Computed example of a mutant assay.
Amino acid sequence: MIRFGVIGTNWITDEFIRCANLTGDFTLNAVYSRTEQKAVKFAQKHSVDLIFTNLEDMAKSNSIDAVYIASPNSFHARQAKLFLQNKKHVLCEKPISSNLLELEEIIKVAKENKVLLMEAMKSSFLPNFKSIKENLYKIGKIRRYFGTYCQYSSRYDKYKAGKNPNTFNPEFSNGSIMDIGIYCIYPLIHLFGKPNNVIANGFILKSGVDGEGSLLLSYDDMDAVIMHSKITNSSLPSEIQGEEGNIIIDKIHTPENIKIFYKNGEVEDITVPQSKDIMYYESKEFIDLIKEDKIESTINSYSISKNVMEVLEKAREQMGVSYPSDNKDL
């Protein structure tokens, strides 16, 4: 059994715990929250006795082997570094850091301490994403990738009402591209590598973060178009276009229905069975790697995370989005 601690007491942590339990090698031993009341409430819900309100104490604890980090984005790298320095394995929610410098620092610390560090981007591990990769050759020479994820945030109403939710606050390294756009960028990098050039535009809210935006990315013999938004909805699927056909992906963040439309008019359904317990797959990968004494995933590898972060950084720079974390050392 791998003994976990969790940082963050929101719905995503609940879901991680539920899905990680399905692996059969997970046990939740500790809960952290800044306030004791929240920590106790969350711990009681999951039948856990050990709570922390001090991260240093938790990192030094002999009661955990690994930590799942689901705090606001701006805290990710600093918290990951603390646990890595204390030789705890770290599974960190996306985006794993605020910028490339932070990411390079925590990778360095993970290697120095010989512990596992992995970005929790769930889509990379899904059977239907693997099906896309395995069937990509069928559509011939790839000429275009189109990724879209636009989901109106319930917190946008709070923002418009004059409040300052984390979702639209640069203090927390947030905004549309970091929260939503990354789901379109990750598959692109996985399938086609780092682009040669990035052109980004977006609507910048008065708070200083992007509410929505688009990217045009160029490769030697193809291009990619990405649309992302937290202030509008879209019903469009994503698509990969080849000279022999095109692949239609219902949801790029959680592909569940995948079809190839060949240029001769034939249609092939390449959807494969996939659990509704979506976070099970990333949980199993992380736990299996710990058991195998690996410090890096071959799927969500360090290089993938770095290439994705480089695109995010270039896009933010062109949109004029900066975070306080960009000017701080870990």
Score class of each variant (00 low, 15 high):
T13Y: 02
N21Y: 05
G24Y: 10
D25E: 13
D25S: 13
Y32R: 01
Q37W: 11
I51Q: 13
D57E: 10
M58Q: 11
M58W: 03
S71W: 02
P72T: 01
P72H: 09
S74R: 09
H76E: 05
Q79Y: 09
L84F: 05
K87C: 10
L91P: 00
S98G: 15
E104F: 02
E105H: 15
I107P: 02
K108V: 05
E112Y: 06
K114Y: 00
A120V: 00
P127H: 08
P127G: 02
K130W: 02
S131E: 05
S131H: 00
R143H: 09
R144G: 08
G147L: 03
Y156R: 08
G162N: 04
G162I: 13
K163F: 13
N164G: 11
N164Q: 15
P165L: 07
N169G: 09
S173K: 11
N174F: 04
S176W: 00
M178D: 09
D179Q: 14
P187L: 04
P187T: 07
L188A: 09
H190L: 09
H190Q: 15
P195H: 03
N196F: 01
A200V: 01
D210F: 00
G213I: 06
D221I: 14
H228D: 14
K230G: 09
N233Y: 04
S234A: 08
L236G: 09
L236T: 11
I240N: 04
I247E: 13
D250T: 07
P255T: 07
N257S: 09
F261Y: 14
Y262E: 12
E266K: 06
E266R: 14
D269F: 03
D277Q: 08
M279Q: 09
Y280E: 11
K284A: 09
E285T: 01
E285C: 10
T298Q: 12
N307T: 07
S322G: 09
